[in-house]
Structure formats: C-alpha cells, structure tokens
Simulated assay, not measured.
Amino acid sequence: MQGIYAWLRARPLVVDSAWALILLALSLLEILTDPLPGNSAAEYTALVLLCGAVMLRRVLPVTVLLATWLAGFVQLAGDVPPAMMDFAMPVIVYGAAAYAPRWASRLALAGCFVAPSAAAARWWDEPETSTSNTVILFLLLTGPFVIAWVLGDSMRTRRAYYAELEDRAARLERERDAQAQVAAAGERARIARELHDVVAHNVSVMVVQADGAAYAIDAAPERARAALGTISATGREALAEMRRLLGVLRSTGEDQGLVPQPGVDQLEDLMAQVRGAGLPVELRVDGVPAELAQGVALAVYRIVQEALTNTRKHGGPDAAATVHLHYGDAALSLEITDDGRGADAPGDGMGHGLVGMRERVAMFGGTLTAGPSPDGGYRVSASLPLNGPDGKK
C-alpha cells in the first residue's frame, strides 16, 4: 500500500486526470438526464474547460485559473446555472492558492466572492426572499471557495517552510564541511609546527654530539661514549614525541594513552639537555608563577626550544644563552638572549622556526620580536596574555 501511495505522489498528473474523468462522467450523466434547452454549446464548453482545469491544476496553475474564470463567464453568458461541473471551481481555487504565484492566488481569492455573487444575481430571482436568507445563501455559496483557498494557502506556507528547512540543513551541512576542512588545515599546521620543533631541536643536538664524539673517539673515549649516550637518549625522546604526534593523526577519538605535551615544568629538563649538547644556558624566573593553559605552556616550551636550537646552530662554538621568564599581572614575558654571532650568523635560507614561533604567539593574542641585539648576539622576546579564553591566571 505504501508503494502505491508513493507511486501516486510521484505522478500528480495521473491522479488529477482520474478526478477529471470522474467529474466529466458525473457531469455528462447530469446533462443527459436533465438537458438544458438551447444552450448545450455553452454547457459543453464550460464542462470541457472545468474538467481540463482539474486535470492540469498542478501542472499549469495560472493557465487553469484563467480557464476557470473563462468557464464562469461562459456559464453566465449562456445561462448555464450551477451544476455538478462547478464542483471543480473550489478545487481550482485550492490549486491556485497552493501552487500559483501570489498574484494568481489573490485573483483566486477574489473569485471566491465574485463567483457566488454573480451566481446569486444571475439565478436567484425570487423577490419574496428576505435579506437574511440572501446573506445565508451567499455565505453557503462563498464558504466552500474560501475554505479551499485557506487550505491551499496553508499548503503553500507549509511547503515553503519545509523548503526553508531543507535549504537550511543543506547550508549547515556545507558550513560543517567547510569548518571541518578549516579545522583539519589548522590541525595539520599545528602538527607541522610540532614536528618542525621536535625534529629541528633533537636532530641538531644529535649532530652536535655526533661531531663531538667523532673528534673525541680516539683522544677521549669516555667523552665519546657519553656523547653517544646523549645521542641515543635524544633520539629516543624525538621518537617518543613523533610517535605522540602521529598518534594524534591516527586516533579516532578513543583514549590512546598519549604522553602529555611538554610545558613550562619541563624547561629544566630542556636546559639540562641543551647543556649536555655543549651550550651553556641559564634559566631565570621572576614574579609569581601562574597556572597556564596547556596551549600557552606548550607555546612557551616550543619558543624556548626553537630559540636555543637556533643559538646552537648559528651562535658559534663559544655562545652562551639566557632564558628569562617574567610572570606579570596580565601577561607572561619571555626573553631568550645569547652572546653569539648575532647579525653575522649564517642562515640556512629556511626560516620556518621564526614563522612557527610567531604563529604560536599569534594564536593567543600575544606579540613576538626576534632579531640581532645591538650589543651583539641574538634576542627573542615574546609576551603571552594570561587572562582570556586561552590563558589562565
């Protein structure tokens, strides 16, 4: 049964044609059993127009409405009183209100009052009828037309509402896909920054230690052995961090048991690793340490890590560095300075480290400056807000 209903809904012309044939059969039966003398042409013309209008009411609603008006004029001019075929008129009014443009719907509403008034004036010729009875008759004739128009207009409103819901759902789906793409691009950029920092820092430590071990392997085997141990530990640390990042890419939402991301608490370990790689570094902390959001803490760690990596790569063999953290009332100030080559340091032509630092700081509404110091060496200074949606105080 459901399949038949769906088949009929998909073929409105078939359904309307069936109703038109039923109306045609009943009207012909009425005409043949009670023929009107002398005006059969007008009667048959009105019948064809109205039955055709019922058949095409959803396909050509405007044309059908005009044809119905024409059928009414034919009936008035040919003196064809209301008959079975006029049951088509409320149906046409419903179709015009539901499917036709607004101007056609208003024209159909006007017909709801014009047609009964014209019929009463043309064929209601009993002078003894009281005014109240005339009003009642007018309401009885007008009621079905007005009810049909109200039902059709309600159908139009409901269809428009459903269409708006479908359009909104499609728009929300497109926006969701676009937001997912933006989020994926942001996540790729974040992971790219993380991978750059992990690889650049740890590989540079391993290269420095490997060079030292190569020089000391004959003259100082113990120092070479210690350097190799540092290389091994650094490599394991790099693999652990890369495994954590790749685990984020592979995760499907369940708990993967990943290692927590580094933050300010791990700066001492970073200092020890950097000193072990041969770069003297001092950490100074001023102010009252405040609890930082995970993202801010990670940004501080990565900025320090990248700045020290650049010092080790470009500062020269005798460079030393200082890391200064100052907790203020509204912001955390971070400064990394060294006494290396500064403006005379050779570059590698890449510059991704500084770009990554600026992106990290910009994510939290902070500022960053980096460049050679006037007194020599290099200076990286950043300020990260502590108050706001991304920070804690």
Rank of each mutant, 00 (worst) to 15 (best):
M1Y: 10
M1E: 10
L8P: 03
L13M: 09
A18F: 15
W19D: 00
L23G: 04
V54R: 01
L65K: 00
L70W: 04
L70V: 12
D79P: 02
V80A: 03
M84A: 13
Y94M: 11
R102D: 09
A104H: 05
L109Y: 03
E128L: 11
L141G: 07
L151R: 06
D153H: 08
R158N: 10
L165T: 08
L172M: 13
D177K: 13
E187L: 15
A189E: 13
D197Q: 10
V199A: 14
V199I: 15
H201V: 01
V208H: 05
G212I: 04
A220T: 10
R223E: 14
G235V: 04
S251T: 10
Q256C: 08
Q256H: 07
Q261C: 01
R275Q: 14
A277K: 02
L279P: 00
E282F: 06
G287Q: 08
V296C: 07
A297F: 04
G315V: 02
D318N: 13
L334R: 03
D339M: 06
R341D: 09
D344L: 13
P346M: 08
H352W: 08
A370G: 08
S373H: 12
D375E: 14
V380K: 00
P385S: 06
D390W: 07
D390C: 01
D390Q: 12
